[in-house]
């Protein structure tokens, strides 16, 4: 009996010793630095400070390289490409996107590979066939990739694919400011699609999407998108007096944005 108890105890202690030790959480300071710099770059992009964003993304990429984080490196190349595109340096942006694709492919990072491929396809209008393959985005991919796919689909005249991607964006948008802005972009995109399908004016579906987008933009605040929405409203409006009001508002927004940065 004692032997049996001893054996049970031994077995239990053996099981206990096989339990894995709790994993100690270790933070890579370079990774944290890369993420912090990337956030600053994203913030600068929001403020339309393309040069500053470029510097931040370059530093972030350096930190990601020092951290040895291949996914963060791929994202760094992509972010740098976005800042270069926004700053008007298309040649450098192409190089960055290509580098992001190579980096993501070598790391098996399908998300960043697709992100960069879509951005590259948007830049290279001539290569329509290559970009067709990019439109079918897996559902699990992040929201920004679905939005990029929707825009590319609009450029390629693939209306159904664009609607499907915009619908996914709306389904994925969170309730934070970022989420509201993505939803506003998707509604605005849908409104533009409806307007293109029936440009006779008085398009109820286009107005519904546009009003939702304007409401979201009033909550989240994004003057550049607001300008785009107001311009569409001026096109959609059939009543002359109201159309003139929309046009005046668009001009006022444009003037303010030309004089000073968005934020």
């Amino acid at each position: 009996m004692r032997l049996a108890v001893l054996l049970v105890l031994l077995a239990l202690s053996a099981c206990a010793s096989r339990m894995p030790a709790p994993e100690v959480q270790v933070n890579n300071p370079w990774q944290a630095n890369a993420e912090s710099l990337a956030r600053s770059g994203v913030d600068a992009m929001e403020r339309e400070k393309w040069g500053f964003a470029r510097v931040m993304f370059e530093r972030s990429l350096q930190a990601a390289t020092l951290a040895g984080d291949e996914k963060l490196m791929a994202l760094g190349h992509y972010n740098l490409g976005r800042a270069q595109t926004a700053g008007g340096d298309a040649a450098a942006a192409r190089q960055s996107y290509r580098q992001a694709i190579r980096q993501a492919d070598s790391a098996g990072d399908a998300v960043n590979a697709r992100r960069a491929a879509l951005a590259l396809a948007m830049l290279e209008d001539g290569d329509a066939q290559a970009s067709e393959a990019q439109l079918d985005v897996p559902v699990a991919f992040p929201i920004d990739i679905h939005l990029a796919a929707a825009r590319l689909a609009v450029l390629r005249g693939r209306e159904n694919a664009a609607r499907q991607s915009y619908a996914r964006v709306l389904g994925m948008a969170g309730k934070d400011r970022n989420g509201l802005l993505y939803a506003a972009r998707a509604h605005l995109g849908m409104a533009e699609l409806e307007y293109a399908a029936d440009s006779q004016g008085g398009n109820a579906a286009a107005w519904a999407h546009l009003n939702t987008s304007l409401g979201l933009l009033r909550r989240a605040g994004q003057p550049r998108l607001m300008l785009q929405a107001v311009k569409l409203a001026a096109k959609l409006e059939s009543e002359p007096v109201r159309r003139q009001m929309w046009q005046q508002r668009a001009r006022a927004l444009e003037n303010i944005l030309q004089q000073s940065p968005a934020r």
């Binding site: 993420e35 990337a38 956030r39 770059g41 994203v42 992009m45 929001e46 339309e48 393309w50 964003a53 993304f57 994202l75 992509y78 972010n79 976005r82 800042a83 595109t85 926004a86 700053g87 008007g88 992100r115 951005a119 948007m122 830049l123 992040p142 929201i143 920004d144 939005l147 990029a148 825009r151 994925m172 948008a173 969170g174 309730k175 934070d176 970022n178 989420g179 802005l181 993505y182 972009r185 550049r224 998108l225």
Partner: peptide, 16 residues
């Protein structure tokens, strides 16, 4: 409910 794209450059700007 977050969107989870805080490290990704936002859309818009430079014609995109």
């Amino acid at each position: 409910e977050g969107t989870g794209t805080e490290l990704v450059a936002p859309p818009g700007g430079g014609g995109q």
